[in-house]
């Protein structure tokens, strides 16, 4: 269902929106994001642009002064798409290239996070070497399911955040909890603009000062919580029941890895948008942050009932 949005100024037909974008080109920020465009549109365009009928906007456009090239002006408005006149502005309404589950648990030394490397295009397993677990701060990993382009954008925000810490060089760096709080705000803000970042995020890390492990997850609408084990997507249904039975905060690295591999295997068996190519990331107080090279898991297809499907029952399996 499309939520209803505040519509344009009644006088402003959808076709005029492109002029609004040009108008603001002199003042818009260098880097455009979708948010500013819609926000400015009503404010800027009423006075000069609104033709009574909403039609033929180009005839009433004032001559454009020469302005330096502005990337912000490159943003077309949603209103110049094929949407019928008066239709509400649409933002992301569904994801295109998607990642599936991210799994993460706390253990004795810190946290361990796992995901496969697939970027699926619908049901097509299209991009098979996508990093969905990335370093966000010196001792913080962020993992993401959902729209990959949005995650690439989020990764860029996190890189900028971290670069700022490096540049200031004052010894202050973001802790996992702070990265989590930041992402909560980003996700919640975007959903309030009805333009969500289509991701489920997992934030995991260790507070360098105290050695305390942190694990949290945040959904595309800003719902978030922290726990000793978290998962996104299918992982919520397939992995977390295993975690509830077997995860302990004091488990060893070997035990933690075995548990994650078990959960990954189940997810791989039952999630059609998954591939047998995984990475595992760890953050520990002792040895910092690591993300493994991609690896695959052994799978089991030798069950008697699999080999002889009609042995125990007639009819099809």
């Amino acid at each position: 269902m499309q939520p209803s949005l505040p519509s344009h100024h009644p006088l402003l037909g959808p076709d005029t929106a492109i002029l609004a974008a040009q108008q603001q080109s002199a003042s818009a920020s260098f880097f455009h994001n979708q948010r500013t465009n819609t926000a400015h549109q009503d404010a800027n365009s009423n006075a000069v642009l609104a033709p009574a009928s909403g039609a033929m906007p180009f005839t009433v456009a004032p001559p454009q002064a020469h302005a330096p090239f502005d990337a912000g002006a490159l943003a077309f408005d949603a209103a110049i798409t094929n949407a019928p006149p008066g239709a509400p502005n649409k933002h992301t309404t569904y994801p295109y290239v998607t990642g599936t589950s991210v799994l993460a648990i706390k253990y004795k030394d810190g946290i361990m996070m796992a995901a496969d490397t697939l970027g699926a295009y619908g049901a097509t397993k299209r991009y098979k070497s996508i990093s969905r677990i990335v370093p966000a701060a010196p001792t913080t990993l962020v993992g993401a399911g959902g729209e990959i382009s949005d995650f690439q954008y989020i990764s860029k925000l996190l890189t900028e955040l971290n670069d700022n810490d490096v540049i200031r060089d004052d010894g202050v760096v973001l802790k996992p909890r702070e990265v989590f709080a930041y992402l909560q705000r980003v996700m919640y803000n975007r959903r309030n603009k009805f333009d969500p970042l289509w991701n489920s995020l997992v934030v995991g890390g260790v507070d360098q000062a105290t050695g305390e492990a942190f694990l949290g997850t945040c959904s595309m609408i800003g719902v978030s919580y922290t726990d000793s084990h978290v998962a996104t997507g299918f992982g919520n249904h397939l992995a977390r029941p295993l975690f509830r039975n077997e995860q302990r905060d004091d488990m060893t690295e070997q035990e933690a890895r075995a548990l994650l591999e078990k959960a990954l295997r189940v997810c791989y068996y039952r999630d059609k948008n998954s591939i047998n190519k995984f990475v595992i990331g760890t953050v520990t107080k002792e040895s910092g942050m690591k993300v493994s090279e991609p690896f695959s898991l052994s799978t089991e297809w030798g069950y008697d009932a699999f080999v002889h499907p009609t042995k125990h029952a007639l009819g099809s399996w």
């Binding site: 979708q34 490159l74 943003a75 949603a78 110049i80 649409k90 992301t92 309404t93 382009s149 690439q152």
Partner: peptide
């Protein structure tokens, strides 16, 4: 190319 594609994902569907 990505910036244009990403910032206009609805217009460029």
């Amino acid at each position: 190319v990505m910036q244009i594609g990403y910032n206009n994902k609805n217009a460029l569907s």
